[in-house]
């Protein structure tokens, strides 16, 4: 409930009521304390909001602050609600809708990256094909035997989706993804501002 938050004020004025679904990326700065993630996730499940991706890690050790990055889909009104509901949580310092901020800065989208580890098992032509494609995607091999590779790939989620789809017929056995990490472009930082 940070009324002084300059990001928040303008957005109370919803210009138009719209039913179109949009995907937004939210950055939430929280106290890194027990249960804080449960509060965030419980809010989403309890109120029926979508979580497309979630990532969280402590980003400022001295102040015990974590940054939660959530990708969600909903109408503009719902996304507004999500932002305010998150802001109502007591351990939440700041919520920023990076997608809205990017628009305001006349940018296409926030910077978003995800990392995935992709295990592919097989032999012969398929194995060679997997390796060739991984190079095209700038994935690196971080583990291998004569029967398998583990690739490490970073990029936008869509690139990772595409890589996984391509690996599927080539012996894909396991995938682990980090979820999206995101920042806005430009010199200003969310965490360097007072909050």
């Amino acid at each position: 409930m940070n009324a002084q938050n300059p990001d928040a004020l303008s957005a109370y004025f919803l210009a138009e009521v719209s039913d179109t679904q949009e995907t937004h990326t939210l950055s939430v700065i929280v106290d890194n304390e027990p249960g804080v993630l449960a509060r965030v996730i419980g809010l989403f499940s309890g109120r029926g909001y979508n979580i497309d991706s979630l990532s969280v890690s402590e980003t400022e050790h001295e102040r015990h602050l974590s940054r939660v990055t959530i990708v969600t889909t909903g109408t503009p009104q719902i996304i507004e609600q999500i932002r305010h509901q998150l802001d109502r949580l007591v351990p939440v310092h700041r919520v920023r809708d990076l997608t809205v901020a990017a628009r305001r800065f006349k940018q296409d989208k926030p910077l978003e990256r995800e990392l995935a580890l992709v295990k592919v098992t097989g032999s012969g032509e398929k194995r060679l094909e997997a390796l060739r494609l991984s190079e095209a995607f700038k994935a690196t091999v971080i583990d291998a035997t004569t029967e398998h590779f583990v690739f490490e790939i970073t990029g936008r989620s869509s690139k990772i989706e595409q890589f996984i789809d391509i690996m599927r017929p080539l012996g894909l056995v396991e995938v682990s993804r980090t979820g999206v990490a995101a920042l806005n472009r430009g010199p200003e930082g969310l965490s360097s501002q007072a909050y």
């Binding site: 409930m1 009324a3 928040a8 109370y12 919803l14 009521v17 009104q77 507004e80 609600q81 305010h84 509901q85 802001d87 109502r88």
Partner: peptide, 11 residues
């Protein structure tokens, strides 16, 4: 006093 009450139901 609660921003989440605003525009929740009625614009």
């Amino acid at each position: 006093v609660d921003p989440s009450s605003i525009n929740k139901i009625v614009h």
